[in-house]
Design a protein around this nucleic acid. Structure first.
Length: 129
DNA sequence: CGTGTGACCGGCG
DNA sequence: ACGCCGGCCACAC
């Protein structure tokens, strides 16, 4: 079930979306949407699940366009390998990401998810190929 | 079509 | 522990 979604450019410019989206983006969004509430995962884990574990940066790029698209993409549940909220500055406000996580019962200190190890949700494991 | 950049990651000194 | 470097690949210029 993959529909056409806009690229970060198209979204940021408020374009009609739907043009030449990459399946990669869609796959990323699908995975992110499946992250259970109260759990988090990393860019690398998603990339790994999609078979392109060396392209974790693309996951971040995809998140860049995950804003305001529908269905909602819980981008706040994606952090880097250390549990750090590296993408927080890309949200409406610098605290948005942190607040969303806290609202789900996740403790955040110093821009880092506490007990990240336990809350980590690996799509490669849970969505078994 | 070449170059630079990035919400990353793993490896190496 | 810490910092640097290379790889990946889509996109903007």
């Amino acid at each position: 079930m993959r529909k056409k979604i806009a690229t970060p450019k198209e979204i940021s410019t408020g374009e009609p979306a739907i043009k030449k989206s990459r399946d990669f983006f869609l796959d990323v969004y699908d995975v992110v949407r499946q992250i259970p509430k109260g759990r988090v995962t990393s860019y690398g884990a998603i990339a790994n699940y999609l078979g392109t574990k060396l392209s974790s940066r693309m996951v971040g790029w995809a998140m860049n366009g995950a804003h305001g698209i529908k269905p909602k993409v819980p981008a706040h549940r994606v952090v880097n390998r250390n549990g750090m909220l590296t993408g927080r500055l890309h949200f409406a406000t610098p605290d948005e990401m942190e607040n969303l996580l806290k609202a789900e019962g996740i403790e955040v200190k110093e821009h880092t998810v506490s007990n990240f190890k336990n809350l980590f949700w690996d799509p490669y494991t849970h969505l078994s190929l």
